[in-house]
Simulated assay, not measured.
Amino acid sequence: MRQSPTFPLLCALVGLTVLAGCSSPRPHASPVWQPQGGTCSAGPAQSVVGQQATASVMEQARQRSGALMARILRPGQAVTKEFDAERLNLEVDAQGRIVAVRCG
């Protein structure tokens, strides 16, 4: 069986395409999508203490803190113990009022 003269060229092109997909981006390349928020700073979010823990209040606190994510911690709720510098924790009382704001 005789190969087409373009077959070796096609194989080389496929190989280069596969290798290009495995290469890491250049240092100056910027990602297409970046998450909103980052490292948490609880200080700017302290103004929500005493407020009812609604979705809008939680989002407002998350934005003020600069955190990537936020969660509400209820009394007696089991929580993970690992520290996450991008997470804001809103501790609430039995009535759902925010009693403490901290990062982690």
Rank of each mutant, 00 (worst) to 15 (best):
Arg26Trp: 05
Gly96Asn: 07
Ile98Ala: 07
Gln77Met: 15
Pro35Phe: 09
Cys11Tyr: 12
His28Cys: 00
Val14Ala: 12
Gly43Asn: 09
Asn89Phe: 04
Glu86Asn: 14
Thr54Trp: 13
Glu59Gln: 13
Gly104Asn: 12
Gly21Gln: 13
Pro8Tyr: 05
Gln3Trp: 12
Ser56Cys: 01
Glu59His: 11
Val49Asn: 00
Gln77Thr: 06
Val49Ser: 02
Gln60Gly: 13
Ala29Thr: 09
Arg97Tyr: 00
Ala20Val: 13
Gln34Ala: 07
Ala55Ile: 10
Ala78Tyr: 14
Val92Asn: 01
Cys103Ser: 00
Leu19Arg: 12
Cys22Leu: 15
Arg97Glu: 00
Ala100His: 05
Met1Asn: 00
Leu16Ser: 10
Ala29Cys: 04
Cys22Pro: 02
Arg2Lys: 14
Asp93Phe: 07
Val79Ala: 13
Pro27Thr: 01
Asp93Glu: 07
Gly50Phe: 03
Pro75Met: 14
Val48Gly: 06
Arg87Trp: 02
Asp93Lys: 02
Val79His: 10
Ala53Val: 05
His28Arg: 07
Met69Gly: 10
Val101Cys: 12
Ile72Ser: 03
Ile72Lys: 07
Lys81Thr: 15
Leu90Glu: 01
Ser4Gly: 02
Gln34Tyr: 04
Leu90Cys: 02
Gly76Val: 09
Asp93Val: 03
Ser24Thr: 11
Ala94Val: 13
Ala70Asp: 02
Ile72Phe: 05
Met69Pro: 02
Met69Ile: 08
Gly66Asp: 01
Val101Gly: 06
Phe7Pro: 00
Gln52Cys: 04
Met1Trp: 11
Cys103Gly: 00
Leu9Phe: 13
Thr80Arg: 14
Pro35Trp: 06
Asp93Thr: 05
Pro27Ala: 11
Ala61Tyr: 09
Phe83Val: 14
Val99Trp: 01
Val48Trp: 14
Lys81Gly: 11
Pro75Phe: 15
Ala45Ile: 05
Gly96Arg: 09
Pro5Gln: 11
Ser65Gln: 06
Asp84Ser: 07
Ala29Tyr: 03
Arg71Phe: 09
Gln77Val: 11
Gln52Ile: 12
Leu90Arg: 04
Ser56Thr: 11
Val14Leu: 15
Ala61Arg: 06
Gly21Asn: 11
Leu9Val: 10
Ser30Gly: 08
Gln77Pro: 01
Pro25Arg: 11
Gln95Tyr: 01
Arg87Lys: 14
Ala85Tyr: 06
Gly50Trp: 01
Gly104Thr: 04
Glu86Cys: 09
Cys11His: 07
Leu88Asn: 00
Gly15Lys: 06
Gly104Ile: 08
Ile72Pro: 10
Leu10Val: 15
Val49His: 02
Ala70Trp: 05
Ala67Gly: 07
Ala55Ser: 10
Leu73Asp: 03
Met69Asn: 10
Val101Asn: 09
Gln52Ala: 14
Met69Lys: 09
Thr39Ser: 13
Val92Thr: 15
Arg2Pro: 01
Leu13Ala: 14
Val14Asp: 03
Ala61Ser: 05
Ala12Gly: 12
Thr6Met: 03
Trp33Asp: 05
Val79Glu: 09
Ala12Pro: 03
Ala70Tyr: 05
Met58Gln: 15
Pro5Asn: 09
Leu88Cys: 04
Pro25Leu: 08
Gly76Ser: 05
Arg62Val: 00
Trp33Tyr: 14
Ile98Phe: 03
Thr17Lys: 03
